[in-house]
Amino acid sequence: MSTALNETIYIIQHLAFEDLGSLEDVFYQLGYRVRYFEAGVDDLSKAMQHTGLTIILGGPIGVYETNDYPFLQKEIDLLKVRLESNLPTLGICLGAQLIAHALGAKVYAGHSKEIGWSTLELEAITHNILAPLDQVPVLHWHGDTFDLPTNAQLLASSAIYPNQAFSYGPNILALQFHIEAEAQAMEKWLIGHTCELHKAQINIPNLRMESQQHAPHLEGVAPMILQQFLQQLEL
């Protein structure tokens, strides 16, 4: 994929403080521009029809909540067409669930919340794009999970949920965990998700401490995965 200065990465955002995090500076350093689209507010057609990379970020709503959030159905319909066209797509958390759903897999409420930092169990496959995350704690922050889509390649699991990441050919990557987590931004998450954290009985001071401990390391590793994904894209 070209890193020409006129190349723009389109970002679909579902929650103001869940942005590109540490990945945004990586794109700037590689010569890309970044443009955000607000799901539920903006028309997502341009982002979904973009022939370059589009990234779908996380959020607290569920893929199956289309009655409460009608915009989700339009987003899903656009995403199905995008994936059928094999356009470069990266999904994070809710974005990964949307990709799984658009590929025909079931997305549903899990048996427990997975919130906090822990390592992944990486699949022993050749050229696993997530190999740099071996023994590196990543941030999990979700209650929903998904079945693995047909013909998808499982990349990683966790102790709680078996499907944490998958690829669907070289152009489509779905990550249930938050590879973009950034140490300096985590307080926004702790504030914005306070109701969820208290309901799940998460110890907020401990989560803050873990974030300060682990996020800087993740920030150093995430660019390696992002650059490898960009290099493997087939446009």
Rank of each mutant, 00 (worst) to 15 (best):
L235Y: 03
L23S: 08
A109C: 00
L5S: 10
D147G: 08
F27T: 02
Y36R: 14
D134I: 07
L94Q: 01
I56N: 02
H101G: 03
L155S: 10
F166S: 07
Y32K: 10
L78V: 07
L79S: 06
Q164S: 14
A105G: 06
A131Q: 13
H198I: 12
H142P: 13
V81Y: 01
D77P: 00
Q135F: 00
Y32G: 07
L87T: 02
A124L: 06
Q73L: 14
Q29F: 02
V63H: 00
L133W: 00
A174H: 05
V41F: 08
S157F: 06
H14R: 03
L122I: 13
W117L: 07
P70M: 07
T3P: 00
L15F: 11
L98A: 04
H50I: 10
A39C: 12
G104Y: 05
A39Q: 11
A183Q: 15
E18G: 04
Q97H: 06
Q164C: 14
R208Q: 09
H101R: 13
F27D: 02
T145G: 10
Q201P: 00
Q13G: 05
V81A: 15
P216R: 06
G21D: 06
L87G: 02
Q227T: 14
G169I: 09
F166V: 11
A185C: 15
V81H: 05
D147R: 11
E182C: 15
D144S: 15
N6E: 14
P137E: 09
G110S: 06
Q164K: 12
R35I: 06
P132S: 12
I160D: 10
E24G: 02
Y36N: 13
S45K: 14
P137R: 05
E38H: 11
G91Q: 07
Y28Q: 08
G95K: 04
L5E: 10
